[in-house]
């Protein structure tokens, strides 16, 4: 089967002085795939993700995102991706509507597009009553769902999610994943990091980084079979327990 690959990384490497944060990492992600990017703290996830988002230049290797080379066209990459993290998402002191207008604006949507998309988004999340209220007052679970919807307002090819569900209650986490599924069904690729290993099961494929290298990459069921484990937790433990870089 010849799927369209929206992320291609080939021996992608990033060194800071003597320290190799990301060590010759290679993987492909297909269009519409939910790709789980797991690893222990300090394994190099954040650095790898920054390179793919065009925020940091790799030391060596090759990578293309949404069809653009990370060395030559980082600006074009930024236009074709969405990004959301637990730490940075929405402006708390703006209303829901103002946030939508702002992000729509920076991604170059026309006023009409912003209006249509905004209404659609608010309807989908059932936020009509709150549309003119400050984001600050929303419960965390709602904020995260809203932040995700805003991150894909410009219909990017890929959306990068950095620990999107940290601290969110189980019911809202489930709903967040339903949103992710729907988005993936529309053909938008999801690239997600998480510390909740049960969430890793929801991904189509999962990679696990240990000490700067990808030490496993497969479907959740494939990984469980390979490592003879009952769940992803066990898989992760077998791989990450021997990490040498825990102090970094």
């Amino acid at each position: 089967m010849d799927k369209e690959m929206v992320i291609k990384a080939d021996k992608l490497t990033k060194r800071f002085g003597d320290f190799t944060a990301v060590d010759a990492v290679s993987f492909d992600v297909a269009k519409g795939e939910i790709f789980g990017f797991l690893g222990a703290n300090g394994a190099g996830k954040t650095t790898a993700m920054r390179m793919l988002c065009g925020l940091s230049k790799p030391t060596s290797g090759e990578a293309s995102v949404a069809g653009f080379d990370v060395f030559r066209y980082p600006e074009k990459i930024k236009k074709n991706i969405g990004y959301m993290s637990q730490k940075f998402s929405l402006y708390e002191d703006l209303t829901i509507k103002e946030n939508i207008e702002f992000y729509g604006g920076i991604y170059g949507l026309t006023n009409k597009q912003i209006k249509d998309k905004g209404t659609e988004l608010i309807d989908m999340l059932d936020l009509q009553a709150e549309a003119n209220k400050l984001v600050r007052g929303l419960p965390l679970g709602w904020k995260q769902k809203l932040a995700f919807s805003v991150a894909i307002i410009h219909e990017p090819k890929i959306v990068f999610l950095d620990e999107p569900t940290g601290g969110v209650d189980p019911a809202n986490r489930k709903q967040f994943w339903e949103l992710i599924y729907e988005t993936a069904d529309k053909g938008i690729t999801i690239f997600v990091t998480t510390h909740y290993l049960d969430e890793a099961e929801y991904c189509d494929r999962v990679s696990i980084m240990v000490d700067g290298k990808i030490s496993a990459l497969d479907t959740p069921s494939g990984l469980k079979k390979t490592y003879n484990a009952k769940d992803m937790n066990e898989v992760f433990f077998q791989l990450a327990r021997n990490a040498t870089r825990s102090g970094d």
Binding site: N41, G166, F236, A240
Partner: peptide, 13 residues
């Protein structure tokens, strides 16, 4: 208070 938030599964264990 939430000592393990944001920490990976192995360190948490």
């Amino acid at each position: 208070d939430e000592p393990t938030t944001g920490v990976d599964a192995v360190s948490r264990f």
